[in-house]
Computed example of a mutant assay.
Amino acid sequence: MSLFHAVVWLDHHSAQILQFDAEHVQAEKVKASSRHSKQHGSAVRTEHEFYAEVCEALQGISEILITGSKTAQADFKHYLEKHRPAQVSSVVGYETVDHPSDKQLVALARQFFLKHDRMAGVPTPM
């Protein structure tokens, strides 16, 4: 099931992806590979593979909020801009947060998207 909004909490090792609408929440977790090779730059390749998996999980979602540490957000944003430019416009915001529960993360995202939709002129249901 692909829903309209998603919030992602990520660090450099895992990503918690929560797609939601007014009534449903669908969770998915993506973990970075723990394999290491002796090739030059393998850590960068492993990180790129991880971010590619996150992008694949977000494919088709119209509006995405990225949360987590500033460093993880900046690295993911850089990856998007360089390797997935078509998905850049789907990410409508970045918020720095610690380690919220899934319920806290969805509540934060609902508030964010309510404000975002109002700023975009989208009517909100009463």
Rank of each mutant, 00 (worst) to 15 (best):
M1E: 09
M1D: 09
S2W: 13
L3M: 04
L3G: 07
L3D: 03
F4G: 07
H5R: 11
A6L: 02
V7S: 01
V7I: 00
W9R: 00
D11C: 06
D11Q: 07
H12K: 07
H12W: 09
H13Y: 11
S14E: 09
S14D: 05
A15T: 04
A15V: 02
Q16F: 09
I17N: 03
L18P: 06
E23C: 12
E23P: 15
H24A: 05
V25S: 04
A27Y: 07
A27Q: 12
K29P: 11
V30G: 03
K31M: 13
R35E: 15
K38S: 12
Q39A: 13
G41N: 01
S42Y: 04
R45A: 14
R45E: 06
T46G: 09
T46P: 10
E47W: 14
H48W: 06
F50R: 02
F50G: 00
A52T: 11
A52G: 08
C55P: 10
A57T: 04
A57V: 01
L58C: 02
Q59S: 12
G60D: 09
I61L: 03
I64P: 03
I66G: 13
I66L: 12
G68V: 05
G68N: 01
G68S: 02
S69P: 09
K70S: 14
T71A: 03
Q73F: 08
A74L: 12
D75V: 09
F76M: 04
K77V: 13
H78D: 12
Y79D: 02
L80M: 08
H83S: 04
A86V: 11
Q87K: 11
S89K: 12
S90D: 03
V91F: 06
V92D: 00
G93D: 01
Y94T: 06
E95Y: 09
E95D: 14
T96K: 11
T96H: 11
V97Y: 06
D98E: 11
P100G: 01
P100Q: 00
K103Y: 15
Q104T: 04
L105E: 01
V106G: 10
A107C: 10
A107R: 04
A107F: 08
A109M: 05
Q111E: 05
Q111D: 09
Q111F: 11
F112G: 02
L114S: 10
K115M: 06
H116T: 05
D117M: 13
M119R: 06
A120D: 10
G121C: 09
M126G: 15
M126W: 13
